[in-house]
Simulated assay, not measured.
Amino acid sequence: MIRSPVRPHVRRLPADLTVVLALTVLTNVVVFAPVIRETPLRVAFGLVFILVAPGYALVALVFPERGPVDRFDDVNGEMRSPTTILERPRSWWGTIDGPERIAFSIASSAVIAPVVGFIVVTVQGSFQFGPTFVAVSAVTVALTVGAIWRRLALSPDDRFRVPYGEWTDTLRAAVFDPNSRGSAILNVALVCTILLVIASVGYAATALPQDDEYSTIYVLSEGDADSVLEIPPGESREVVVGVDNRERRATTYTVVVVEQEMDVSENETRVVDQRELDRFESTTDHGETWRLAHDIEPTADGEVRIVWLLYVDGDAPEEPSIESAAYRVHLWVEEGDS
């Protein structure tokens, strides 16, 4: 039976949902704080939050009651009788136990995050990590507040609590009790599998470069159709190159401009000779664009292309190459009319 959630004896916040709120706040601090966001903690906290918190809050909202296998009293650890269990009120959609709650939480998170992201992209017209993460956090907080209200509306005996005693008994049965070892092992294996998946994805996300941290370089000059730069013989041409910083930190860039003489055959394109024309360096804040305007004057004839090599954090070598650059863009040179 649903009761008023404002009585004095039910005002204590559920510990698990308090943890969800604390995790939401802490993760946002780790993800957006200027210094902490540059550490691996950003990926670790963000991944755990996205995979667990939204779904757990939703499951807690839908299923505020104890599950059918909550056989132990969390206060004194005593076994409740089957009659007590059967007499407890049930929501019309039923209840779930611990392993199901964990599995549903992760599955629900896998749905909530993309749906919220799709809505944000639809409203803004493009994907941006910051607004999307804040939106997922806001949804998580709203679901958690609703879950707290629903759980506190129940009598103390009917509310879901994290069944530490149940989990301990399940683990003990899996190891020592031959009669219940089969089902207990399945429950433990399910939880271990879920934790292994989280750990594996977390390791991969921490070890590999993140898609939302990148830089781009491109030519801004107009009139260069089909990647061709028209320059009359003996003359120069001003070219504007743009560098976008999406590294989520202030970054020092070095752009090295090289001229390459090319051997173009039927099946391959080969660099015959290369010379450096110029190099530039600038420090750009996250979200900003560095516009580099400079003159290009080719020194070679034949098949020639100009390549802009972008190095991140100012680590440009004395002898730059396409292989050593983080990003690059090029234009072919074609003799135009004087």
Rank of each mutant, 00 (worst) to 15 (best):
V241G: 01
V240E: 04
Y327H: 15
I296K: 08
D315W: 01
G302A: 10
W290C: 01
L229A: 08
L309E: 03
V243M: 02
P317R: 04
V219F: 12
R291K: 08
Y218G: 09
G242P: 00
P320H: 05
A225Q: 12
R275K: 12
D211R: 15
V272I: 14
V197A: 15
T283I: 07
V307A: 12
D244E: 07
V243A: 06
S324V: 09
V255C: 08
E238L: 15
S200E: 12
E268Y: 12
I296A: 04
F280H: 11
A225P: 05
A326Y: 10
W290Y: 06
Y327R: 15
D295Q: 12
V329F: 14
V201E: 06
D278L: 08
V255H: 07
R246F: 14
W332G: 10
A293D: 00
W308I: 00
R275L: 12
R305P: 01
S221D: 02
H294T: 00
D295P: 03
D301I: 10
T206S: 15
S236Y: 12
T254D: 14
R246I: 10
I198N: 06
E235C: 13
T283R: 09
L331N: 04
V258G: 07
P209R: 15
R328D: 13
V312A: 07
W308L: 03
D263N: 11
V272K: 14
V241E: 04
E230I: 15
A316T: 11
T284N: 01
S215Q: 03
G223E: 00
L229S: 05
G242Q: 02
R305C: 00
P317A: 06
R305Y: 01
L277D: 00
